[in-house]
Design a protein around this nucleic acid. Structure first.
Lengths: 363, 363
DNA sequence: GACCTTCCTGTTATCGGTCACACCATAGTG
DNA sequence: CACTATGGTGTGACCGATAACAGGAAGGTC
């Protein structure tokens, strides 16, 4: 036992005159636990046999196995992942590239992904990016690939991200979650169909046309929703009002909502997400236009709070957790096959009708 | 160049009779990039010199250094973290134990922590837990320690989590973020002070007393806020209404709010977070009690949406990003010192007064 | 000139696992 | 009985980095 003995004290005797508390970056090495050899010794077998037990190799006698397992428990052994990774080239870790993960959607996907990865026996390493600049994204991907991640999930598969992914040398498996992308396989809900659902719902209620408060133009989710909304209006022969991309925030919705609120021809508004809808609701309220009597509002996402807005929000639900799970499925399939062509998985969104939509008042 | 050549194909010829598409877990090893020796050879130096350049050792001639750097660029070299971790016992990775990370607060802390860790040159591995059961927590901590994380940040430092942390053998540095805890150093805002701020504000406006809709009892944040609220009422000689712990959701707030709404003596409600407040607002609205004319409402957190509730919510702001940063600071200090006694860091919360509070109507 | 520093560089061991292979039983086959 | 499979186990090499140490060249001091 080396208890109480200074760690490697001989080699470099502290210079006497120098203040000892100077904040040097010399860090004491982490104390070492027991390793495979220790377990082997205690169990009276070779280290290779311990390895076999650990990896559930069939050719180990039952009695030997239990003896090894007992030794492992006695020594509180845990395998050193770094050593294993070094030799197998498989880290058992998946990387996540996240963007704006404080938003409800991304945060939920992150959660779903982590959950699914854990279930599949993988660790999860996260690299968030602050901006969608090329360098920022490349850096994040680089950080993850340094860690020998076996695959990467991009939560915001926008062009910058997937382009960086395509550049990853080793043909790293990857998947985009949330929106379509041409460079990487993706798992997403059908944003266009969701937008169409919302627009259709409003048209069916009798509204002449539907205004749209869009999300940021650099999010493909936002673009797809614009597309679905526009297409539906077009197919119905309704006029297509201009869109002005906004952020995903209530503030954005409020600002855009104030403009829409003073326009008496506006009777139905489809918002790119629920937070935007929240802002729009407030703007309408302040302008004295009642929802849904004067104006109908639909959101997108169905965050847990949406049912408690004033009034409760009609919205398009997407199952973020399921999205995460399916994303991991696709990634694992790629890892198993070695190729990237795992295709596209598209989940159907669902319209949740609450109290924020109604037929327009007939004059 | 080994391009096109099968990787170690000789050793284990595929058994002829077995269907080839059986889903076995045999995975092709990741193709290998260039390693230190390759760089060394190209630069005409030893691998150790490459290592010196990489680690910014001072004793390398300028010319040698540039030659090595060029070789690294030419070969697109990146250091193998697993090998480095194996020998140094330092993984450069911090672990995060997260709970309910889809909530705005936890998600924001996660983000702040990741950001700060990256800035400090650390990677981040996440282990979320679904329940606060002892086993679930232990498992998460175990997963992280398997990865040789150098420290752990607990986002929900509730007793179960910190207890598990205390059991980590190697004296792993750790820190709890968000609430006080007796087992681990913590970084938090002063939840009690924040609650006091809110309560005081309502009392100062002239309310006789303040009702409270609390968070879940197994979150120390919730308990601390109850404490601050209760203490302030007590000091002011106001009566202390009973509390019923709820979840952090709007739904919870709504349910509790419906009960409070029918009680005419209720004129001021302090909610444990903004989402609860949202539910309370709706319940009051439905009951025909106007905010702030009939009832004042205060939240906690200041999520981005709170300013767009109807009416805009008076709330207690906590700076989650700063919390994350400071958490990493404390953790890094522990890693540098080797001991766990990095004390408590307490940040001051701030009251943000908006339109949901006013003096009670005088009869 | 002998000697000691200081700067720069290379050689070898090592971290803790897995892989390839050798080995020894025992059992089955002709 | 010789010969081959097969189950169970041990031995040594190896993954790719860093640590420890050795040693050569250049410069300074006596």
């Amino acid at each position: 036992m080396t208890l109480g003995q200074p760690v490697s004290g001989e080699a470099d005797p502290a210079p006497e005159g120098v203040p000892a508390d100077e904040p040097r970056t010399v860090v004491a090495p982490r104390p070492r636990g027991s390793v495979m050899r220790d377990v082997a010794r205690l169990a009276g077998v070779s280290h290779q046999t311990v390895s076999r037990v650990l990896n559930e190799h069939p050719n180990v006698r039952q009695e030997t196995r239990t003896r090894v397992l007992e030794a492992m428990r006695a020594l509180n052994y845990r395998r050193n992942l770094a050593a294993r990774t070094l030799v197998t080239r498989r880290s058992g870790t998946l990387g996540i590239v996240g963007y704006e993960t404080t938003l409800f959607g991304p945060a939920s996907m992150l959660y779903g992904i982590e959950d699914a990865a854990r279930t599949a026996g993988y660790f999860v390493s996260v690299a968030t990016i602050r901006t969608l600049e090329r360098d920022s994204v490349l850096q994040a991907v680089d950080r993850l690939s340094q860690q020998s991640v076996e695959g990467i999930v991009a939560i915001a598969p926008n062009p910058a991200v997937s382009h960086a992914l395509a550049e990853v040398p080793a043909g790293l498996p990857c998947v985009g979650v949330g929106a379509a992308d041409t460079h990487v396989p993706t798992v997403r809900i059908d944003n266009a169909a969701g937008a169409a659902l919302a627009t259709r719902h409003l048209l069916d209620l009798g509204h002449r046309t539907v205004h749209h408060v869009a999300g940021p133009s650099d999010w493909p989710e936002a673009a797809e929703r614009v597309e679905g909304w526009r297409g539906t209006l077009y197919a119905a022969g309704a006029i297509v009002p201009p869109v002005l991309p906004q952020e995903w925030t209530a503030r954005s919705g409020y600002e855009r909502g104030r403009i829409l609120a003073v326009d008496p021809t506006v009777t139905a508004i489809f918002c790119a997400n629920d937070q935007i809808a929240l802002g729009v609701l407030r703007a309408l309220h302040e302008a004295g236009r009642r929802v849904p009597d004067d104006v109908s509002v639909v959101g997108f996402d169905d965050m847990p709070d949406s049912g408690y807005f004033l009034p409760p929000l009609t919205t398009v639900r997407q199952d973020f957790a399921e999205l995460g799970r399916r994303g991991i499925d696709v990634l694992l399939a790629q890892i198993a096959n070695g190729n990237r062509d795992a295709g596209q998985v598209v989940l159907a969104p669902e319209l949740v009708v609450r109290a924020s939509t109604a037929a327009p008042r007939s004059h």
